[in-house]
């Protein structure tokens, strides 16, 4: 059979497949069983046709176009478990805390680095107050006046400040995640530098004798915010770690998989940043007694810890019943795919 005859004979079926494909591709597609059967049938016959064309007319335009059609149909047919099947609420309730528990060493490393930076920054500025100028952008250091911290800041619009701070922090977190491609090296810098910033500021206030005030203005939102930054840093470190220690699979595959898990970790921090941003916009600058602010800080810490512990426990329970393996499978299996599997069963 020559190519034209072949094309002419099967063209109606291909056109029908194309039409069905367009129908199924609509957002609110509600195909009936007969349509689905027909779609699968047409897809299989088109696949066979493509194989024929690839053998007998590999360079033809028809083979190229049919290949395109088959690939689109293939994507439609095998899309199961793809977009829209993930369960954001379940992830928030217990998936995220469970993931936190699994990545705890990396998050702890990020935290330790940040705290180390903080300590260094504190000591540097305590010994040499001028050092703060090399930490902060020019002009900003001059505007710091510890005595005025507790003044009423009526000119600051809390809603706007809240939104700005929140997005800025999310940006830092995203950077910490992205820096995973530098195999964690830039992550180290990010963590240490941000820690030094806080440490340096703390030293400035300590020298003026306002330590108590300073921490009252940092901690209410800082607890959640730092936790989120630690997590983001941990996600960056995890990517770097997986690159150096890929295990049994090829490095490229493992790295991509680690990036996915890390992205999941990063997405989980967004609610944390929203909460921290709200606190920073409303509670931190409010003229409340300092003790109350420390109280808020303690409260957020307790709430976050409770969320992590409870969520991780519940997560282990859910996973233990769902996939019957839990931690025994090691850290290579992708949590995201496990959620989806359970969602379907």
């Amino acid at each position: 059979m020559d190519t034209t005859t072949f094309i002419r004979r099967h063209k109606p079926a291909w056109a029908e497949l194309e039409g069905l494909l367009a129908q199924l591709g609509r957002r609110k597609a509600r195909p009936d069983a007969a349509q689905l059967d027909r779609f699968a049938e047409l897809y299989r016959s088109a696949s066979a046709n493509l194989a024929y064309l690839q053998t007998h007319a590999p360079a033809s335009e028809a083979a190229l176009l049919l290949g395109d059609l088959v690939s689109r149909a293939h994507n439609q047919l095998y899309a199961g478990g793809a977009a829209g099947r993930s369960k954001p609420l379940e992830f928030l309730l217990w998936g995220f805390p469970l993931l936190l528990k699994r990545r705890l060493p990396f998050i702890a490393l990020a935290g330790a680095l940040l705290l180390l930076g903080e300590l260094l920054g504190y000591m540097a500025v305590r010994d040499n107050p001028a050092a703060i100028h090399s930490l902060l952008p020019a002009g900003m250091a001059d505007r710091i006046d510890p005595a005025r911290t507790a003044d009423d800041r009526g000119d600051i619009n809390s809603a706007i400040v809240s939104a700005e701070i929140m997005t800025n922090n999310i940006r830092v977190a995203v950077l910490a995640f992205l820096s995973g491609v530098t195999l964690g090296l830039f992550t180290i810098y990010l963590m240490a530098f941000n820690g030094m910033l806080v440490g340096g500021l703390a030293a400035v206030f300590a020298q003026a004798g306002y330590s108590y005030t300073f921490w009252a203005y940092i901690l209410p939102h800082g607890v959640i915010e730092l936790a989120a930054i630690f997590i983001a840093g941990g996600s960056g470190f995890y990517m770097g770690y997986k690159f150096f220690v890929p295990g049994e699979l090829p490095r490229g595959i493992v790295f991509v998989q680690a990036a996915k898990e890390s992205a999941l970790l990063l997405l989980g921090t967004i609610p944390l940043f929203v909460i921290a941003g709200l606190i920073e916009g409303y509670i931190t600058p409010a003229s409340l007694p300092l003790e109350l602010k420390y109280g808020v800080a303690g409260l957020t810490l307790a709430a976050f810890a409770a969320y992590c512990v409870y969520g991780a426990k519940r997560g282990e329970r859910e996973q233990g019943g769902g996939s019957g393996g839990g931690d025994a499978r090691g850290s290579l299996s992708l949590p995201a795919s496990r959620f989806r599997k359970e969602g379907r069963s």
Partner: peptide, 23 residues
């Protein structure tokens, strides 16, 4: 946009590739 395996891209890869726009 497809996954390198030829399948449709799911939400996580899409989020990652778009976060990396920054880089």
């Amino acid at each position: 946009v497809l996954q390198a395996s030829g399948q449709s891209a799911t939400i996580l890869p899409v989020v990652i590739r778009n976060l990396f726009r920054l880089l």
